[in-house]
């Protein structure tokens, strides 16, 4: 009788021990850093916290390195040098890769996405203490020479059609850096992680065997979530008119500038794009926002393996067909 009770008991304890060993109940390693002018949070799950920490350090280092290449503020950045250059210039493979992707989005969006708006961005200067609306002549001058064909890219050889063109990779560089950070994490053997650069999110694997739950910021209620969606191994980027803006004479002037007019794009409050990589999602979110609700949604529908939704200026929600029913609204 004793043996009959002890044996199952021992078996159960053994199973318990195995089960405990197989599922580490460790929390994630989470670190934040200020990179590329924004707050970047990297969260990684795994059995060995020290290894995760090392991997995260490497990922942050990679993002800091890319900032040195892409920044429009740092004197010695490749983008600044390219902006200053006349004639053909050889760029690093990273910059070339990014410019080619950006040009693809620029063409697919009929110029709604533009990497040549450096002068226009500087003119609006939303980062300054007291930004104001520039004059029509100033805007016209700042738009000269822009457009999808303003860059000729041939391998790593880049040529600006107009030597005065100033590059600004604001709508794509952050996403690209997130992609690179995830690549570094993956290379370091991390299986489950998320990189969130001020709302540009890329997910690596799942979270403890489940989908990651992504909250989408409400465009008009600060700190509130408008919707959530469950995803894994995807990127999510939201562009909204609430991120950087000022108000003058009762109008909101935000940072998502329309290259066709030189003024902040009208029609949307926010656009969220879900895609394989964050750089593409980042560029498409900007492009769709600039195009406006209907044309923006149509652009997202046209792209393969891309989903998203638009919040119009009157608060309407337009969702791509592939995403319908997957969002949980609040």
């Amino acid at each position: 009788m004793l043996r009959r009770t002890l044996l199952p008991l021992a078996a159960v304890l053994l199973a318990l021990w195995l089960w405990l060993g197989a599922t580490p109940s460790d929390g994630p390693v989470v670190r934040t850093a200020l990179v590329m002018g924004t707050l970047v949070e990297i969260k990684a799950y795994g059995a060995d916290p020290n290894r995760l920490d090392t991997a995260i350090t490497e990922a942050f280092a990679e993002m800091a390195r890319l900032e040195q290449l892409f920044s429009a503020h740092l004197e010695q950045s490749e983008i600044r040098q390219l902006s200053a250059a006349r004639g053909v210039r050889t760029v690093s493979s990273e910059v070339a890769e990014l410019l080619i992707l950006g040009q693809m989005v620029a063409r697919r969006s009929q110029g709604a996405f533009d990497m040549g708006l450096g002068r226009l961005v500087a003119l609006w200067d939303l980062q300054s203490e007291s930004p104001k609306v520039p004059s029509g002549e100033q805007i016209g001058a700042a738009l000269r020479g822009t457009g999808p064909e303003s860059l000729t890219i041939n391998g790593q050889q880049v040529k600006k059609t107009d030597p005065a063109l100033q590059l600004d990779l604001g709508g794509i560089a952050k996403g690209y850096a997130v992609d690179r950070a995830v690549a570094v994490l993956r290379q370091a053997g991390v299986k489950s992680a998320a990189v969130n650069a001020g709302g540009d999110i890329r997910l690596l694997g799942d979270r403890l065997g489940e989908d990651w739950r992504i909250g989408i910021q409400h465009p008009r209620k600060a700190g509130e979530v408008m919707a959530t969606i469950a995803l894994r191994d995807r990127s999510v980027v939201t562009s909204g008119d609430y991120e950087r803006f000022f108000e003058q004479d009762g109008r909101r002037y935000h940072h998502l500038l329309d290259p066709r007019t030189g003024y902040p794009a009208r029609g949307c409050q926010s656009v969220t794009v879900i895609a394989g990589d964050a750089a593409l999602a980042d560029a498409l979110a900007t492009a769709a926002f600039v195009l406006g609700p209907r044309a923006g949604l149509a652009l997202l529908e046209r792209m393969t393996d891309v989903e998203g939704f638009v919040i119009t200026d009157d608060g309407q929600r337009l969702v791509t067909t592939g995403l319908d029913g997957q969002l949980q609204w609040f």
């Binding site: 998320a194 999110i201 909250g215 910021q217």
Partner: peptide, 13 residues
């Protein structure tokens, strides 16, 4: 500390 309770893991904004 894990004192936080949210409906989501990450926020896209």
């Amino acid at each position: 500390g894990e004192a936080v309770e949210t409906d989501y893991d990450l926020l896209s904004r």
